[in-house]
Design a protein around this nucleic acid. Structure first.
Length: 853
RNA sequence: GGGCGCAUAGCUCAGUUGGCUAGAGCGCCGCCCUUACAAGGCGGAUGUCGGGGGUUCGAGUCCCUCUGCGCCCA
């Protein structure tokens, strides 16, 4: 009557596909939406970018979250564990262009019957509407997402696969646009003119992440600025961009620079353009660079933007979106001669303008000496071949406290409400919020993103009146203003005088990603679901995007619901190369996650991941995976042995002191693991479980083997079996969050249902079973056993070799405890006669039995 | 330049509110085919806890300082 189904030769092979299939069929991880908020543990899963491939870093951090999810499920929570795909953004845009041979032209109308070219030609890309383009993006990303899902299932993530979303999907667009409209209605979203990094070839704003520095030749031009007080005295600056002279708004030097201190607070006049500008002090001015005093233009580079902002300087742009000098005479160019100088460069490219300005400066004697050639880093769009300009454009912003001390203080307070794991990560959030000096720019001049859902009235000449915004009805979302028409207008009024135009921009990807709780949780779309899962219990994420993803999510939730979007932030570390450098994408892709799963098993890879403590960078280490694999195999074999002893019932009386001691130790282990998990420290929980497990197999199982087999000491055998069964049951549960496959495999040999919905072990129940058992006895026995083994090892004999007499010396208390285990010790060590003596520390002396020849 | 973190055995890392002789695994060395496991088991050796100073009866742990490394921000 074994009642068990233990295989002859347990193996890890094939268990992943088998159990992943069973879990899916039986819906173990499907969210039960009858559960109320207090019964739910909800996870704001990070949506991975699907345009690349998953690397070991993903496996690492997603495993951490899954361990927590599995733990919470066993604690009786209904876990809401969705999965999103981040397919919104430029990487996807590029893939679609190349894959289908198309390009997006937002001015085109939607063609519902469009089919991409059969033989895509990257050089002859077919222009299509934004809506068509987005449809193709969705088609292509769906294919990537299938591959990702397969990997996640193989890794054993206990995701509810009926809860998925795409950041470019209809639901995400709807949420993103709705949230934006709510921001707008409450006055939290606004448009303003502001400096933006701009690629003149692509005519798009460029994000900081897409910048790269390239070393380019340039030349310092030494130019004299007459002081206002005495026009015969000149201040000499050196600049690589003399063509921006007409955009000069100030000169700047370091506050400690004694050469220029007398000039601070005075004014100078720009050569050629005769504009009076102040001389100011700022620490970013480098006394070593050029003449130590620089001209600030709006805008030559990013430092100009900082100076402009921090010194509150006027905006005098002269470069247009096409990279040419603006044709219209700027209002600050006032004198007749200045106007004629400007007309000389109006409409020219910056290259031509530079030549002309230099020539004029030379003629006027404002240029000193020959330009001094240098090489310096210049910012480029990674895909562009012309240096970036900084142009002033109309953009949309959302308030984030950068310009509002009250909001800023409120957002800092939100950060303090949030429970951070590890706690020190909160400081990064605080530093970021306290250091903000501008609102959140959310508009982007791109195609593949969520459109800004607005139209503008056009005046009689066809120019947009940006103050006359037309919003869609919330019920009509999502909309695309490039193809949809505002209420009261018809399509033929698009871009016509007196008609309307759609906002051509899309939102920053963070403007959508900041709403993942709302997207996944059914905000406004499914209020019943939203009430059951929000605010989310945990946001797992990496530390480098605290300032972006985490912060922006807090902003949106604060503005919309006046609360946190999630209660805990679980911050994961990074995967480093074995040489401690951050693992690069190229290197990460050399070792694909799937090949690791094939080689070491999913449980083994998960073991490695779960060994990395929260927030700590961890080395990529196949050694840990080998250990994980060994642990999984050991669990199979140890379980087989325990079940082979017919130790499947745990209802017998546990009477032996050794057995009670084991359970006391187990109770302690469960308590520690539980506390660690409650603190989101899955790594600690794994460590204590593992440590107990090895002691269990190495010492306890060896110790009670003989007694458990005994057919004479029935009470002793029953006690051992009950302790073994109780311990195996608890161990499988302790390991289940980490090693879901092997624990489920073993569970299936002797239990019904799934281990992953079984209740987490309870330390007080185990402590009650342990009764007066002393946990410390386990260590005493381990020490005694170890010394007995050592004596055999030293004598180079088998562990089965008989010992004639053994004497264990120890202090009285330990001797008392070990006496209770004397019979088991004798059996385990093949000791004929066991004596005890008194000593400070445990010390075993043995006399080996003569070896029979 | 500002902030945060890290530094413990050859390697990867634990070490909770300060408290017994600082631990684990890998690797290394030795032993053992043992009726769960030889893709295994058992045992052994291995430390200036980055340097210096301080607080304390007592410091890997707390404070100061220096050095090196990483990340974020400017």
């Amino acid at each position: 009557m074994t009642g068990t189904r233990v295989p002859e030769k347990p193996t890890l092979d094939g268990i992943e596909d088998r159990w992943a299939g069973v879990w899916d069929n039986q819906g173990h991880y499907t969210f039960d939406r009858t559960k109320t908020r207090d019964q739910v543990f909800s996870i704001d899963t990070p949506p991975p970018t699907v345009s690349g491939s998953l690397h070991v870093g993903h496996v690492f951090s997603y495993t951490h979250t899954d361990c927590m999810a599995r733990y919470k499920r066993m604690r009786g929570f209904e876990v809401f564990y969705p999965m999103g795909w981040d397919d919104n953004g430029l990487p996807t845009e590029r893939r679609v262009q190349n894959f289908y041979g198309v390009r997006c032209d937002p001015s085109l109308p939607y063609d519902p019957d469009f089919t991409p070219p059969a033989t895509p030609d990257a050089k002859q890309q077919v222009p299509i509407s934004r809506k068509n383009f987005i449809e193709l993006c969705e088609q292509l990303t769906v294919e990537d997402e299938v591959v990702f899902e397969h990997l996640w299932r193989r890794l054993g993530l206990s995701i509810d696969w009926s809860q998925t979303y795409q950041t470019i999907g209809r639901n995400s667009q709807q949420v993103s646009q709705l949230a934006f409209l709510r921001n707008l209605k409450r006055g939290e979203a606004y448009q303003a003119e502001a400096p933006t990094l701009w690629d003149v070839t692509f005519r798009t704003a460029v994000a900081q992440a897409e910048l790269e520095d390239r070393e380019r030749p340039g030349a310092y031009h030494r130019i004299g600025f007459p002081t206002t007080a005495d026009p015969l005295t000149k201040v000499f600056i050196e600049t690589t961009r003399p063509e921006l002279l007409a955009a000069c708004v100030a000169l700047v030097a370091h506050p400690d620079d004694e050469r220029y201190q007398p000039l601070f607070g005075t004014t100078v006049t720009t050569p050629l353009f005769e504009v009076e500008v102040p001389v100011l002090a700022h620490t970013l001015a480098d006394p070593e660079k050029g003449s130590g005093i620089a001209m600030i233009c709006t805008f030559g580079d990013l430092t100009d933007v900082i100076w402009w902002r921090e010194l509150q300087l006027p905006t005098r742009p002269i470069i247009g979106w096409d990279g040419r000098i603006l044709s219209e005479i700027p209002e600050w160019i006032a004198t007749e001669s200045a106007i004629s100088q400007y007309e000389h460069i109006a409409g020219a490219t910056s290259h031509t303008a530079k030549e002309r300005i230099v020539a004029r400066l030379n003629e006027n004697g404002d240029l000193v000496g020959e330009p001094r050639e240098i090489t310096h880093p210049v910012k480029f769009f990674e895909k562009g071949d012309k240096p970036l300009e900084i142009v002033t454009t109309r953009q949309w912003y959302i308030t984030n406290g950068g310009r509002d001390p009250k909001l800023r203080a409120d957002l800092v307070a939100r950060g303090s409400e949030l429970k951070w794991h590890p706690a020190h990560m909160k400081v990064r959030y605080e530093n970021w919020v306290e250091g903000l000096n501008g609102d959140w720019l959310i508009s982007r001049q791109r195609f593949f993103g969520v459109p800004i859902p607005l139209w503008y009235r056009l005046d009689g000449e066809g120019n947009p009146i940006y103050d006359e915004i037309m919003m869609p009805q919330e019920a009509d979302l999502p909309i695309d203003p490039s193809t949809d028409v505002p209420a009261g207008f018809t399509e033929d009024q698009r871009n016509a005088p007196g008609g309307f135009m759609g906002d051509p921009d899309v939102m920053d990807t963070w403007a959508t990603s900041s709403l993942t709780p709302q997207i996944a949780g059914g905000w406004e779309r499914d209020p019943d679901l939203w009430a059951r899962v929000s605010p989310m219990d945990v946001r797992p994420q990496a530390h480098e995007i605290i300032r972006t993803w985490l912060f922006s999510t807090v902003v949106r939730s604060h503005l919309e619901d006046n609360r946190l979007p999630f209660l805990n932030a679980a911050i994961s570390g990074w995967i480093l190369d074995p040489d401690r450098k951050k693992m690069s994408k190229s290197k990460g892709n050399v070792v694909t996650p799937m090949s690791l799963l094939d080689e070491y098993s999913a449980d083994a890879v998960r073991y490695w991941a779960a060994s990395g403590r929260p927030g700590t960078d961890t080395a990529f280490d196949v050694g840990q995976m080998k250990i994980g694999r060994r642990l999984a195999i050991k669990i199979l074999n140890a379980s087989k042995f325990v079940l082979g002893l017919n130790a499947t019932q745990n209802d017998a009386a546990i009477t032996e002191a050794v057995d009670k001691a084991l359970l006391a130790q187990l109770a302690k282990t469960v308590e520690q693991a539980t506390n660690a998990f409650e603190d989101f420290n899955y790594a600690r929980a794994l460590e204590v479980a593992e440590s107990f497990f090895w002691n269990f197999t190495d010492d306890y199982v060896e110790l009670v083997k003989v007694r458990a087999y005994s057919e004479t000491d029935l009470a002793g055998a029953a006690s051992a079996k009950a302790a073994l069964a109780t311990t195996l049951d608890a161990l499988l549960k302790l390991f289940a969050p980490f090693l879901p496959f092997v624990t489920e495999e073993v569970w299936s040999w002797w239990q019904e249902g799934t281990v992953h919905r079984s209740p987490w072990p309870d330390s007080s129940t185990l402590a009650a079973l342990a009764g007066d058992g002393e946990a410390a006895m386990v260590a005493d026995i381990a020490e005694a056993l170890s010394q007995i083994r050592k004596s055999k090892s030293d004598a180079k004999v088998s562990m089965r070799a008989a010992i004639e007499t053994a004497t264990i010396a120890a202090n009285d208390h330990v001797v008392q405890r070990l006496t209770l285990a004397a019979k088991d010790l004798q059996a385990a060590g093949s000791i004929e006669s066991l004596n005890f003596a008194s000593a400070e520390n445990i010390e075993v002396t043995v006399v080996l039995a003569p070896v029979a020849q």
